[in-house]
Design a protein around this nucleic acid. Structure first.
Length: 446
RNA sequence: GUGCCUAUAGUUCAGUUGGUUAGAACGCUAGAUUGUGGUUCUAGAGGUCGCCGGUUCAAAUCCGGUUAGGCACCCCA
């Protein structure tokens, strides 16, 4: 049979895994520094936990896991007869693959509410699955790196998460633009324009601004049954570049004023912080997801054509559906896959010696192979990444392997070396070769 | 869910208006080279042209279907 993997999934070769780990490790390090703790949740959740949380579109994209055993024997006969897939699902599938990390986190918080102390600060780096049609930069299996704090209304966390963004991308040497807005400001705009009931439609349209331009947004708004008069008002407000200018325009909306005040407080917390990246208020930032209720964030890479590489915001009632009311949370997510692509494009991955092979032993015959093997044990004991070619075959073949492994040094062992007790150490980059004792080699490569 | 494109060697791809035994590069194996790699030269292995059917004297090539993959939209990271 021909080997293959399911569409929308990927294999990662050693080089790719090392680079991905570099991103994950950098992110993790910053999370930990800011006092966040790791949790992990199962790959599968009960389908009832997942369905209904992501809208109708989202439900369609959930991967369902077929029940074990005689699932057809317990299937809904009516649904089966009428070929009604949606109606059939509950009777043959009770589990699904997690669609994101936020809903499982909300479930976790509710289940362990008596064991955790609030504010609860957690981070989570795990794969999620979506039965979407894959395309460039979009997969059916991909990693999310989420960091959230629940159980506090304090806006210092908004400031803290902004700093986390700044610090992570600074560590990665990836210049970004961090955009901040507040859902309440958007709600205020809708209120002022007299279309509060079309708020969700408005945000979806505004969210597309950098993709389809101002004219596109106008068209989109019109398509969503918003009057020309309201559209003109919305567009006027969207021209505003800073919070001061916005104040008079949202004077009449209490929600709008609250949103401005919140952002001012966040920026006040950021006053003394020396940011490496640009942090800016962007009134056109909307975020499609409708569970956000306060501040919202989005990060995009500078100098590269790529969608957002991170986003998040505050949600006032995430745990409500699981029966725990009035627990506010705020969190952001890092789009690891896109960060990877951007860093690859800009050539930002550093050479990481810690994961590479440093020394490879080559040998000419059975005797010298055994001798080299014993030296290898000593080198490894000293903590040096080392290996031996498993057979004393032709030197050309062994050297070829050394090249393909991109090993830094090789030590070629034969009768001369065994007699003198000195080993040859060849620098593969320069081709230079010198004779030294095993202890000297260890000292040099340490 | 909607639209468009692609499918030929392990990989990336050529393949003329349909015409004899389907090619290249890289990779792989071996030799030039019995203690030393990247370069070079030589030789070799490797393909039911995604699958099914149709048109034709003749199909990798044209047509229909099917399956798989990619891209864009929707939505999203």
């Amino acid at each position: 049979m021909k080997p293959g993997i399911p569409k929308g999934t990927r294999d990662f070769n050693p080089d790719q895994v090392n680079k991905r780990n570099y991103i994950f490790d950098t992110i993790k390090k910053v999370f930990i520094k800011y006092g966040y703790q790791p949790i992990e949740t199962p790959t599968m959740e009960n389908l009832s936990t997942l369905t209904g949380k992501y809208g109708d579109e989202g439900d369609q994209l959930l991967f369902k896991v077929l029940n074990n055993g005689d699932f057809l024997g317990k299937a809904d006969i009516m649904a089966l007869d009428t070929r009604d897939s949606n109606k059939l699902i509950p009777s043959i599938s009770k589990r699904g693959l997690r669609y994101d990390l936020t809903v499982p986190f909300a479930r976790y918080v509710v289940m362990y509410q008596n064991d955790i102390s609030f504010p609860f600060k957690r981070y989570q780096i795990q794969p999620v699955w979506r039965a979407d049609r894959p395309q460039k930069g979009r997969y059916q299996e991909f990693y999310q790196c989420d960091v959230d704090v629940v159980g506090s209304d304090s806006l210092v966390y908004e400031a803290e998460l902004t700093q986390i963004y700044d610090e992570v991308f600074n560590e990665l040497k990836l210049p970004v633009l961090i955009k901040v807005n507040n859902r309440k400001i958007l709600a205020g705009i809708a209120e002022v324009a007299g279309i509060s009931e079309r708020f969700a439609a408005m945000t979806v349209a505004i969210d597309k601004l950098d993709k389809i331009g101002l004219e596109g947004v106008k068209k989109e708004l019109a398509n969503r049954r918003i009057s020309d008069e309201a559209i003109q008002q919305i567009v006027n407000i969207l021209e505003v570049k800073n919070l001061e200018d916005l104040k008079p325009l949202l004077e009449t909306s209490e929600t709008g004023r609250k949103g401005i005040a919140e952002l001012e407080e966040v920026f006040q917390y950021l006053d003394d912080y020396q940011a490496a990246n640009e942090i800016t208020f962007d009134i056109t930032l909307a975020r499609g997801l409708n569970y956000y209720t306060g501040c919202i964030f989005e990060v995009s890479a500078k100098d590269v054509e790529m969608g957002s590489i991170g986003g998040g915001g505050r949600y006032d009632d995430l745990t409500g559906v699981f029966g725990l009311k009035d627990v506010s949370g705020v969190g952001v997510s890092f789009g690891a896959e896109r960060i990877y692509d951007v860093m690859e494009e800009l050539g930002l991955f550093p050479q990481d010696d810690a994961v590479n092979l440093k020394l490879l032993f080559l040998s000419f015959d059975e005797k010298s192979f055994l001798y080299a093997w014993k030296q290898l044990v000593k080198v490894r004991a000293a903590g040096i990444n080392a290996e031996i070619y498993p057979e004393p075959v032709k030197m050309k073949k062994q050297m070829k392997y050394a090249n393909s492994r991109e090993v830094q040094y090789v030590s070629i062992v034969g009768s001369q070396e065994m007699e003198s007790g000195q080993l040859s150490l060849k620098d593969m980059a320069t081709g230079e070769q010198e004779m030294m004792t095993i202890d000297e080699i260890i000292e040099k490569l340490k």
